[in-house]
Design a protein around this nucleic acid. Structure first.
Length: 121
RNA sequence: CGAGAUGGUCGGGCGGUUGCGUUUUUAACGAGGAAAGUCCGAGUACCGCAAAACAGAAUGCCGGCUAAUUACCGGUGAAGGCGACUUUAAGGAAAGUGCAACAGAAAUAGACCGCCCGUUUUUCGGGUAAGGGUGGAAAGGCGAGGUAAGAGCUCACCGCCUCGGCGGCAACGCUUAGGGCACAUGUAAACCCCAUUCGGUACAAGAUUGUUAAGGCAAUAAGGGUUGUUUUGCCCGCCUUACAGUAUCGCUCGAACUCAGCGGCAACGCUGAGUCAAGAUAGAUAACCGCCAAAUACAGAACUCGGCUUACAGACCAUACUCGGCGA
RNA sequence: GGCGGCAUAGCUCAGCUGGCUAGAGUACUCGGUUCAUACCCGAUUGGUCGUAGGUUCGAAUCCCACUGCCGCUA
Protein backbone atom coordinates (compact mmCIF):
# COMPACT_ATOMS: atom_id res chain seq x y z
CA UNK A 1 0.00 0.00 0.00
CA UNK A 2 1.50 3.24 -1.11
CA UNK A 3 1.26 6.20 1.19
CA UNK A 4 -1.36 8.68 0.10
CA UNK A 5 0.97 11.51 -0.76
CA UNK A 6 2.57 9.61 -3.59
CA UNK A 7 -0.64 9.70 -5.57
CA UNK A 8 -0.83 13.39 -5.15
CA UNK A 9 -1.15 14.59 -8.72
CA UNK A 10 -4.59 13.23 -9.17
CA UNK A 11 -7.29 15.65 -10.08
CA UNK A 12 -8.16 16.70 -6.54
CA UNK A 13 -4.63 17.94 -5.92
CA UNK A 14 -4.57 20.11 -8.99
CA UNK A 15 -5.29 23.76 -8.98
CA UNK A 16 -8.24 24.07 -11.30
CA UNK A 17 -10.31 27.19 -11.13
CA UNK A 18 -9.32 30.22 -13.11
CA UNK A 19 -10.03 32.48 -10.17
CA UNK A 20 -7.64 30.53 -7.99
CA UNK A 21 -4.80 31.25 -10.36
CA UNK A 22 -5.58 34.94 -10.11
CA UNK A 23 -5.73 34.68 -6.33
CA UNK A 24 -2.29 33.07 -6.15
CA UNK A 25 -0.77 35.65 -8.48
CA UNK A 26 -2.20 38.54 -6.44
CA UNK A 27 -1.76 37.32 -2.88
CA UNK A 28 1.15 34.95 -3.14
CA UNK A 29 4.87 35.32 -2.85
CA UNK A 30 7.10 34.57 -5.81
CA UNK A 31 10.50 33.21 -6.70
CA UNK A 32 12.07 32.82 -10.12
CA UNK A 33 14.88 31.28 -12.10
CA UNK A 34 15.86 31.68 -15.75
CA UNK A 35 13.24 29.22 -16.92
CA UNK A 36 10.42 29.25 -14.39
CA UNK A 37 8.52 31.39 -11.94
CA UNK A 38 6.95 30.05 -8.77
CA UNK A 39 3.96 31.62 -7.02
CA UNK A 40 2.72 30.22 -3.72
CA UNK A 41 0.25 31.05 -1.00
CA UNK A 42 -0.69 29.23 2.18
CA UNK A 43 -3.84 27.14 1.98
CA UNK A 44 -5.92 24.46 3.66
CA UNK A 45 -4.75 21.80 1.23
CA UNK A 46 -2.03 21.33 -1.37
CA UNK A 47 -2.96 22.32 -4.88
CA UNK A 48 -0.54 22.73 -7.76
CA UNK A 49 -1.15 24.44 -11.12
CA UNK A 50 0.96 24.88 -14.19
CA UNK A 51 0.87 27.77 -16.62
CA UNK A 52 2.49 27.80 -20.03
CA UNK A 53 1.96 30.69 -22.39
CA UNK A 54 1.05 30.49 -26.02
CA UNK A 55 4.36 32.08 -26.89
CA UNK A 56 6.31 28.99 -25.87
CA UNK A 57 5.35 27.01 -28.93
CA UNK A 58 2.55 25.05 -30.47
CA UNK A 59 0.18 22.84 -28.51
CA UNK A 60 2.34 19.78 -28.85
CA UNK A 61 5.42 21.43 -27.38
CA UNK A 62 3.52 23.10 -24.54
CA UNK A 63 1.90 19.83 -23.58
CA UNK A 64 5.23 18.08 -23.42
CA UNK A 65 6.73 20.76 -21.24
CA UNK A 66 3.78 20.57 -18.89
CA UNK A 67 4.10 16.80 -18.58
CA UNK A 68 7.77 17.06 -17.76
CA UNK A 69 7.09 19.74 -15.16
CA UNK A 70 4.47 17.55 -13.61
CA UNK A 71 6.82 14.57 -13.55
CA UNK A 72 9.46 16.63 -11.79
CA UNK A 73 7.04 17.93 -9.17
CA UNK A 74 5.84 14.42 -8.45
CA UNK A 75 9.34 13.36 -7.53
CA UNK A 76 9.65 16.29 -5.14
CA UNK A 77 6.62 15.32 -3.05
CA UNK A 78 5.61 15.69 -0.30
CA UNK A 79 5.17 19.47 -0.08
CA UNK A 80 3.62 21.78 2.46
CA UNK A 81 -0.03 22.78 2.19
CA UNK A 82 0.13 25.63 -0.21
CA UNK A 83 -1.57 26.67 -3.40
CA UNK A 84 1.25 26.69 -5.91
CA UNK A 85 1.49 27.92 -9.51
CA UNK A 86 4.53 27.21 -11.63
CA UNK A 87 4.84 29.39 -14.72
CA UNK A 88 7.10 28.48 -17.61
CA UNK A 89 9.02 31.44 -18.93
CA UNK A 90 9.94 31.92 -22.54
CA UNK A 91 13.34 30.28 -22.60
CA UNK A 92 12.04 27.18 -20.84
CA UNK A 93 10.91 25.85 -24.20
CA UNK A 94 14.47 24.85 -25.09
CA UNK A 95 15.20 23.00 -21.84
CA UNK A 96 15.74 19.28 -21.52
CA UNK A 97 14.38 17.21 -18.68
CA UNK A 98 17.54 17.57 -16.57
CA UNK A 99 17.44 21.35 -16.67
CA UNK A 100 13.76 21.46 -15.79
CA UNK A 101 14.36 19.21 -12.83
CA UNK A 102 17.30 21.22 -11.60
CA UNK A 103 15.52 24.55 -11.77
CA UNK A 104 12.23 23.49 -10.25
CA UNK A 105 14.02 21.73 -7.42
CA UNK A 106 15.95 24.91 -6.79
CA UNK A 107 12.73 26.92 -6.71
CA UNK A 108 10.96 24.63 -4.28
CA UNK A 109 13.93 24.68 -1.94
CA UNK A 110 14.25 28.43 -2.17
CA UNK A 111 10.63 28.85 -1.17
CA UNK A 112 10.98 26.29 1.60
CA UNK A 113 7.98 24.27 0.55
CA UNK A 114 9.41 20.83 1.24
CA UNK A 115 7.56 18.89 3.86
CA UNK A 116 8.96 16.33 6.24
CA UNK A 117 5.67 14.69 7.04
CA UNK A 118 5.47 11.30 5.42
CA UNK A 119 1.79 10.72 5.97
CA UNK A 120 -1.28 12.71 5.20
CA UNK A 121 -2.24 14.57 8.32
C1' C B 1 22.78 1.63 -65.77
C1' G B 2 20.91 6.66 -65.35
C1' A B 3 16.92 10.21 -65.40
C1' G B 4 11.80 10.45 -64.81
C1' A B 5 6.00 9.48 -64.66
C1' U B 6 1.84 7.67 -62.00
C1' G B 7 -0.56 5.16 -57.96
C1' G B 8 -0.15 3.40 -52.99
C1' U B 9 1.67 1.84 -47.80
C1' C B 10 4.08 2.80 -43.05
C1' G B 11 4.64 7.09 -39.55
C1' G B 12 8.50 3.06 -34.85
C1' G B 13 8.13 -2.09 -32.33
C1' C B 14 8.94 -5.34 -27.95
C1' G B 15 10.06 -5.71 -22.61
C1' G B 16 10.68 -3.45 -17.65
C1' U B 17 10.14 0.37 -13.19
C1' U B 18 7.38 4.74 -11.55
C1' G B 19 2.98 7.77 -12.85
C1' C B 20 -2.08 9.97 -15.16
C1' G B 21 -7.61 9.77 -17.33
C1' U B 22 -12.24 6.91 -18.12
C1' U B 23 -15.24 2.82 -17.02
C1' U B 24 -18.22 -2.49 -15.72
C1' U B 25 -11.81 -0.51 -10.75
C1' U B 26 -7.01 -7.16 -8.43
C1' A B 27 -8.84 -5.45 -15.06
C1' A B 28 -9.54 -3.24 -19.88
C1' C B 29 -8.93 0.80 -23.07
C1' G B 30 -6.53 5.55 -23.94
C1' A B 31 -4.47 11.19 -29.93
C1' G B 32 -3.38 11.92 -36.01
C1' G B 33 -2.33 11.24 -41.22
C1' A B 34 -2.64 15.44 -41.01
C1' A B 35 -5.89 15.62 -34.65
C1' A B 36 -3.54 21.72 -37.72
C1' G B 37 -5.48 25.80 -41.01
C1' U B 38 -10.94 26.86 -40.62
C1' C B 39 -11.31 27.10 -47.04
C1' C B 40 -16.13 24.45 -48.42
C1' G B 41 -20.33 20.88 -47.45
C1' A B 42 -23.62 18.46 -43.95
C1' G B 43 -25.65 16.19 -39.39
C1' U B 44 -27.51 18.09 -34.82
C1' A B 45 -29.64 22.10 -31.56
C1' C B 46 -32.23 26.54 -30.80
C1' C B 47 -34.55 31.14 -32.73
C1' G B 48 -42.21 31.47 -35.56
C1' C B 49 -37.52 29.95 -41.60
C1' A B 50 -45.14 34.03 -42.35
C1' A B 51 -45.64 35.88 -47.78
C1' A B 52 -43.94 38.93 -51.84
C1' A B 53 -40.47 42.23 -54.12
C1' C B 54 -35.65 44.25 -54.11
C1' A B 55 -30.74 44.11 -52.56
C1' G B 56 -26.56 40.93 -51.37
C1' A B 57 -23.49 36.54 -51.68
C1' A B 58 -21.76 32.08 -54.03
C1' U B 59 -21.14 28.91 -58.22
C1' G B 60 -20.46 28.57 -63.75
C1' C B 61 -17.81 22.84 -70.14
C1' C B 62 -20.53 17.70 -69.89
C1' G B 63 -21.90 13.27 -67.32
C1' G B 64 -21.72 10.46 -62.89
C1' C B 65 -21.48 9.94 -57.52
C1' U B 66 -23.27 11.46 -52.57
C1' A B 67 -26.83 12.55 -46.62
C1' A B 68 -24.84 17.07 -49.05
C1' U B 69 -21.55 20.49 -52.00
C1' U B 70 -18.88 25.03 -55.35
C1' A B 71 -16.02 19.07 -53.24
C1' C B 72 -14.92 14.10 -55.42
C1' C B 73 -14.59 10.67 -59.90
C1' G B 74 -14.67 9.98 -65.22
C1' G B 75 -14.75 12.46 -69.86
C1' U B 76 -14.54 16.92 -73.59
C1' G B 77 -11.92 21.31 -75.05
C1' A B 78 -7.56 24.37 -74.12
C1' A B 79 -2.38 25.04 -72.38
C1' G B 80 2.53 22.74 -71.20
C1' G B 81 6.13 18.56 -71.93
C1' C B 82 10.59 14.69 -76.83
C1' G B 83 7.52 11.37 -73.91
C1' A B 84 5.04 8.52 -69.83
C1' C B 85 1.88 12.38 -68.31
C1' U B 86 0.50 17.03 -65.91
C1' U B 87 -2.41 21.56 -65.22
C1' U B 88 -7.08 23.82 -65.95
C1' A B 89 -12.57 29.75 -61.71
C1' A B 90 -13.51 26.58 -68.91
C1' G B 91 -21.15 30.24 -69.70
C1' G B 92 -22.05 35.04 -72.48
C1' A B 93 -17.69 40.29 -75.61
C1' A B 94 -23.47 39.66 -82.49
C1' A B 95 -28.00 43.03 -74.73
C1' G B 96 -25.52 47.34 -72.98
C1' U B 97 -21.62 50.34 -70.37
C1' G B 98 -16.53 51.12 -68.93
C1' C B 99 -11.16 50.59 -69.61
C1' A B 100 -6.90 49.74 -73.11
C1' A B 101 -0.95 53.76 -70.15
C1' C B 102 3.50 54.50 -73.31
C1' A B 103 4.46 54.00 -78.43
C1' G B 104 2.00 54.72 -83.02
C1' A B 105 -0.81 58.51 -88.47
C1' A B 106 -4.73 55.69 -86.44
C1' A B 107 -6.93 51.49 -80.74
C1' U B 108 -12.50 50.50 -83.04
C1' A B 109 -11.61 54.17 -85.92
C1' G B 110 -8.47 56.56 -90.33
C1' A B 111 -3.65 57.78 -94.17
C1' C B 112 2.79 59.22 -91.16
C1' C B 113 6.13 57.07 -94.79
C1' G B 114 5.07 54.46 -99.18
C1' C B 115 2.22 53.06 -103.87
C1' C B 116 -1.30 54.92 -107.84
C1' C B 117 -4.36 58.81 -110.43
C1' G B 118 -5.40 63.94 -111.23
C1' U B 119 -3.66 68.87 -110.55
C1' U B 120 0.75 71.33 -110.69
C1' U B 121 5.68 72.79 -109.47
C1' U B 122 4.85 74.28 -103.52
C1' U B 123 2.02 71.28 -103.09
C1' C B 124 -3.00 70.11 -102.81
C1' G B 125 -7.27 66.71 -103.77
C1' G B 126 -8.74 61.70 -104.40
C1' G B 127 -7.92 56.19 -104.32
C1' U B 128 -5.38 52.35 -101.51
C1' A B 129 -4.34 48.47 -95.65
C1' A B 130 -0.11 44.80 -100.43
C1' G B 131 4.85 46.93 -97.97
C1' G B 132 7.55 50.02 -93.72
C1' G B 133 7.42 51.46 -88.66
C1' U B 134 4.64 51.22 -83.27
C1' G B 135 2.22 47.94 -80.16
C1' G B 136 -0.05 42.68 -76.23
C1' A B 137 -3.61 43.60 -80.17
C1' A B 138 -3.56 47.06 -86.83
C1' A B 139 -9.11 45.17 -90.28
C1' G B 140 -8.81 36.47 -91.40
C1' G B 141 -3.61 33.78 -93.01
C1' C B 142 -0.83 32.40 -97.33
C1' G B 143 -0.17 31.79 -102.66
C1' A B 144 -2.08 32.85 -107.53
C1' G B 145 -5.21 35.73 -110.68
C1' G B 146 -6.77 40.67 -111.06
C1' U B 147 -5.87 46.14 -110.97
C1' A B 148 -3.87 52.80 -112.38
C1' A B 149 -2.21 51.11 -107.48
C1' G B 150 -4.82 47.99 -104.35
C1' A B 151 -8.54 45.28 -101.78
C1' G B 152 -12.35 38.11 -100.48
C1' C B 153 -12.68 41.83 -105.88
C1' U B 154 -12.11 36.31 -107.74
C1' C B 155 -10.00 31.26 -106.93
C1' A B 156 -7.16 26.97 -104.28
C1' C B 157 -5.66 25.41 -99.25
C1' C B 158 -6.13 26.63 -93.97
C1' G B 159 -9.15 29.34 -90.30
C1' C B 160 -14.15 31.42 -89.11
C1' C B 161 -19.62 31.37 -89.49
C1' U B 162 -24.39 28.85 -91.11
C1' C B 163 -27.24 24.56 -92.41
C1' G B 164 -27.24 19.29 -92.86
C1' G B 165 -25.18 14.11 -92.07
C1' C B 166 -22.57 10.43 -88.93
C1' G B 167 -20.65 9.00 -83.84
C1' G B 168 -21.51 10.14 -78.56
C1' C B 169 -26.49 10.17 -72.80
C1' A B 170 -23.82 14.94 -73.22
C1' A B 171 -19.74 18.52 -73.45
C1' C B 172 -17.90 17.67 -78.14
C1' G B 173 -15.54 15.14 -82.37
C1' C B 174 -15.42 13.85 -87.70
C1' U B 175 -17.44 15.42 -92.26
C1' U B 176 -20.57 17.10 -97.15
C1' A B 177 -22.40 21.64 -98.96
C1' G B 178 -22.85 26.84 -98.78
C1' G B 179 -21.43 31.95 -97.24
C1' G B 180 -17.47 35.05 -98.88
C1' C B 181 -16.02 37.85 -93.62
C1' A B 182 -20.95 41.06 -91.95
C1' C B 183 -20.96 40.68 -85.99
C1' A B 184 -15.52 43.29 -87.00
C1' U B 185 -9.35 43.48 -81.14
C1' G B 186 -8.72 42.31 -75.90
C1' U B 187 -10.64 42.47 -70.97
C1' A B 188 -16.32 39.74 -67.57
C1' A B 189 -10.47 36.89 -61.05
C1' A B 190 -14.20 45.42 -64.62
C1' C B 191 -19.59 46.66 -64.10
C1' C B 192 -22.94 43.49 -66.09
C1' C B 193 -26.40 39.61 -68.65
C1' C B 194 -28.10 34.54 -68.34
C1' A B 195 -28.71 29.97 -65.40
C1' U B 196 -28.62 27.59 -60.58
C1' U B 197 -28.38 27.90 -55.17
C1' C B 198 -28.80 30.48 -50.39
C1' G B 199 -33.63 32.22 -43.41
C1' G B 200 -30.30 33.15 -39.08
C1' U B 201 -27.06 31.67 -35.08
C1' A B 202 -23.19 27.79 -34.00
C1' C B 203 -22.28 22.43 -28.87
C1' A B 204 -19.35 28.52 -25.07
C1' A B 205 -25.67 25.85 -29.73
C1' G B 206 -28.98 24.25 -26.40
C1' A B 207 -31.56 21.19 -22.55
C1' U B 208 -32.43 19.92 -17.12
C1' U B 209 -33.47 21.63 -11.97
C1' G B 210 -38.00 25.45 -13.52
C1' U B 211 -45.35 26.55 -15.32
C1' U B 212 -39.35 29.13 -9.38
C1' A B 213 -38.87 33.48 -6.08
C1' A B 214 -38.12 38.76 -5.21
C1' G B 215 -38.00 43.77 -7.00
C1' G B 216 -38.78 47.77 -10.63
C1' C B 217 -41.34 50.03 -14.96
C1' A B 218 -45.87 50.16 -18.08
C1' A B 219 -51.08 49.82 -18.55
C1' U B 220 -54.53 49.11 -24.08
C1' A B 221 -51.30 52.12 -27.30
C1' A B 222 -46.93 53.59 -27.51
C1' G B 223 -43.10 50.43 -28.15
C1' G B 224 -40.87 45.88 -29.47
C1' G B 225 -40.33 41.26 -32.34
C1' U B 226 -40.62 38.52 -37.08
C1' U B 227 -31.98 38.65 -37.46
C1' G B 228 -30.03 43.02 -44.90
C1' U B 229 -34.21 46.65 -46.77
C1' U B 230 -39.38 47.71 -47.99
C1' U B 231 -44.58 46.41 -48.11
C1' U B 232 -48.50 43.37 -46.38
C1' G B 233 -49.76 40.14 -42.60
C1' C B 234 -49.01 38.10 -37.81
C1' C B 235 -47.32 37.94 -32.65
C1' C B 236 -45.99 40.04 -27.70
C1' G B 237 -46.37 43.23 -21.48
C1' C B 238 -41.01 44.54 -20.62
C1' C B 239 -36.53 44.69 -17.58
C1' U B 240 -33.22 43.37 -13.48
C1' U B 241 -31.56 40.15 -9.69
C1' A B 242 -31.33 35.44 -6.92
C1' C B 243 -31.07 29.90 -6.56
C1' A B 244 -26.44 29.72 -10.39
C1' G B 245 -21.60 27.16 -10.21
C1' U B 246 -16.31 26.18 -13.74
C1' A B 247 -23.26 21.85 -11.74
C1' U B 248 -25.63 17.61 -14.62
C1' C B 249 -26.88 16.28 -19.58
C1' G B 250 -25.39 17.42 -24.59
C1' C B 251 -20.42 13.69 -25.16
C1' U B 252 -19.76 9.68 -28.41
C1' C B 253 -23.13 3.43 -31.87
C1' G B 254 -21.98 6.76 -35.99
C1' A B 255 -24.24 8.81 -43.48
C1' A B 256 -18.98 4.28 -37.85
C1' C B 257 -14.77 1.08 -38.66
C1' U B 258 -12.26 -3.67 -40.36
C1' C B 259 -12.23 -7.87 -43.61
C1' A B 260 -14.24 -10.68 -47.72
C1' G B 261 -17.27 -11.12 -52.16
C1' C B 262 -19.94 -8.80 -56.23
C1' G B 263 -21.03 -4.38 -59.73
C1' G B 264 -18.40 0.01 -61.77
C1' C B 265 -12.46 2.65 -65.65
C1' A B 266 -13.25 5.49 -61.04
C1' A B 267 -15.66 8.45 -57.21
C1' C B 268 -18.87 5.08 -55.10
C1' G B 269 -22.70 1.38 -54.30
C1' C B 270 -24.73 -3.50 -52.67
C1' U B 271 -24.32 -8.08 -49.73
C1' G B 272 -22.20 -11.00 -45.73
C1' A B 273 -19.21 -11.57 -41.30
C1' G B 274 -16.83 -9.26 -37.27
C1' U B 275 -15.68 -5.04 -33.73
C1' C B 276 -17.17 -1.14 -29.98
C1' A B 277 -11.81 1.30 -30.10
C1' A B 278 -10.27 8.69 -26.06
C1' G B 279 -14.35 11.48 -24.12
C1' A B 280 -10.92 15.02 -20.90
C1' U B 281 -12.89 20.13 -18.81
C1' A B 282 -6.49 24.72 -16.46
C1' G B 283 -7.67 19.91 -19.91
C1' A B 284 -5.34 12.78 -19.31
C1' U B 285 -0.01 9.28 -23.07
C1' A B 286 5.01 11.23 -19.28
C1' A B 287 10.09 10.18 -16.86
C1' C B 288 13.99 6.62 -17.25
C1' C B 289 16.38 2.02 -18.93
C1' G B 290 17.43 -2.34 -22.31
C1' C B 291 17.12 -4.72 -27.25
C1' C B 292 15.93 -4.22 -32.55
C1' A B 293 23.37 -2.50 -36.60
C1' A B 294 21.59 3.37 -36.23
C1' A B 295 17.58 6.96 -35.88
C1' U B 296 12.36 9.48 -35.33
C1' A B 297 9.96 14.29 -39.10
C1' C B 298 5.52 17.23 -38.97
C1' A B 299 2.85 17.37 -34.87
C1' G B 300 -1.64 16.77 -29.51
C1' A B 301 -8.73 14.99 -29.86
C1' A B 302 -12.24 19.39 -27.21
C1' C B 303 -19.91 18.01 -30.54
C1' U B 304 -19.39 14.62 -34.85
C1' C B 305 -18.70 13.37 -39.89
C1' G B 306 -17.42 14.09 -45.81
C1' G B 307 -13.81 16.78 -48.68
C1' C B 308 -9.93 20.62 -49.58
C1' U B 309 -5.35 23.15 -48.19
C1' U B 310 -0.82 23.39 -45.67
C1' A B 311 3.54 20.82 -42.63
C1' C B 312 6.44 16.23 -42.72
C1' A B 313 12.59 12.67 -40.92
C1' G B 314 13.15 8.24 -42.89
C1' A B 315 11.68 3.58 -45.15
C1' C B 316 9.10 0.53 -48.68
C1' C B 317 5.98 -1.44 -52.73
C1' A B 318 3.66 -1.65 -57.61
C1' U B 319 3.51 -0.70 -63.26
C1' A B 320 2.77 -5.33 -70.46
C1' C B 321 4.60 3.20 -67.94
C1' U B 322 8.26 6.96 -70.55
C1' C B 323 13.06 8.96 -72.30
C1' G B 324 18.40 8.39 -72.85
C1' G B 325 23.06 5.43 -72.84
C1' C B 326 25.72 0.70 -73.23
C1' G B 327 25.79 -4.60 -74.58
C1' A B 328 23.76 -9.09 -77.11
C1' G C 1 -14.45 27.48 -30.45
C1' G C 2 -16.26 31.36 -33.86
C1' C C 3 -15.48 36.11 -36.60
C1' G C 4 -12.90 40.44 -38.63
C1' G C 5 -8.73 43.62 -39.97
C1' C C 6 -3.60 44.89 -41.18
C1' A C 7 1.42 43.99 -43.59
C1' U C 8 4.68 49.59 -48.65
C1' A C 9 12.05 53.15 -47.18
C1' G C 10 15.53 52.37 -40.52
C1' C C 11 10.51 54.68 -38.28
C1' U C 12 5.24 56.87 -39.10
C1' C C 13 2.00 56.71 -43.12
C1' A C 14 -0.08 57.98 -48.56
C1' G C 15 -0.96 55.36 -53.18
C1' C C 16 -5.22 49.95 -53.58
C1' U C 17 -11.87 53.01 -59.43
C1' G C 18 -5.09 48.10 -62.73
C1' G C 19 -0.61 51.76 -66.72
C1' C C 20 3.04 57.62 -66.39
C1' U C 21 9.37 57.57 -62.27
C1' A C 22 5.87 53.79 -55.90
C1' G C 23 5.43 59.21 -53.04
C1' A C 24 5.33 62.41 -48.23
C1' G C 25 7.22 63.43 -43.34
C1' U C 26 11.08 61.91 -40.20
C1' A C 27 15.94 59.59 -39.49
C1' C C 28 20.98 58.83 -41.71
C1' U C 29 24.96 61.13 -44.84
C1' C C 30 26.92 65.49 -47.38
C1' G C 31 26.90 70.75 -48.38
C1' G C 32 25.25 75.82 -47.00
C1' U C 33 24.12 79.30 -42.87
C1' U C 34 26.84 80.49 -37.60
C1' C C 35 32.66 82.30 -34.01
C1' A C 36 30.33 77.28 -32.69
C1' U C 37 25.80 74.11 -31.82
C1' A C 38 20.54 73.80 -32.61
C1' C C 39 16.67 75.69 -35.75
C1' C C 40 16.56 76.70 -40.93
C1' C C 41 17.81 76.00 -46.54
C1' G C 42 19.47 72.51 -50.42
C1' A C 43 21.00 67.69 -52.16
C1' U C 44 22.05 62.38 -51.92
C1' U C 45 21.13 57.43 -50.17
C1' G C 46 17.50 53.80 -48.94
C1' G C 47 11.93 49.46 -51.57
C1' U C 48 12.25 41.52 -54.50
C1' C C 49 5.31 46.81 -51.94
C1' G C 50 4.98 40.04 -46.03
C1' U C 51 5.78 34.98 -49.07
C1' A C 52 4.36 31.97 -53.25
C1' G C 53 0.93 30.96 -57.50
C1' G C 54 -2.90 32.72 -61.08
C1' U C 55 -6.00 36.39 -64.33
C1' U C 56 -4.20 40.37 -67.69
C1' C C 57 -0.37 42.99 -72.98
C1' G C 58 0.75 44.92 -67.95
C1' A C 59 -0.47 43.65 -60.70
C1' A C 60 1.63 47.37 -54.65
C1' U C 61 -3.59 47.39 -56.68
C1' C C 62 -7.90 42.00 -58.95
C1' C C 63 -8.38 36.46 -57.44
C1' C C 64 -6.50 32.21 -54.60
C1' A C 65 -3.23 29.72 -50.95
C1' C C 66 0.23 30.41 -46.96
C1' U C 67 3.14 33.36 -42.94
C1' G C 68 3.28 36.94 -39.08
C1' C C 69 0.83 40.63 -36.08
C1' C C 70 -3.56 43.00 -33.96
C1' G C 71 -8.59 43.18 -32.49
C1' C C 72 -13.82 41.49 -31.45
C1' U C 73 -17.10 37.68 -29.35
C1' A C 74 -18.50 33.99 -25.50
Amino acid sequence: MRPKWQRMLKKIYRLTKHGSFGFVYRRGESKATAGFSLFYVKSASLKIGFSISNKLGKANRRNKLKRRMRAVVRELLPLKRYQIVIVARQNAAAFGFAQIKEQITELIDKAGLRSNEKKEA
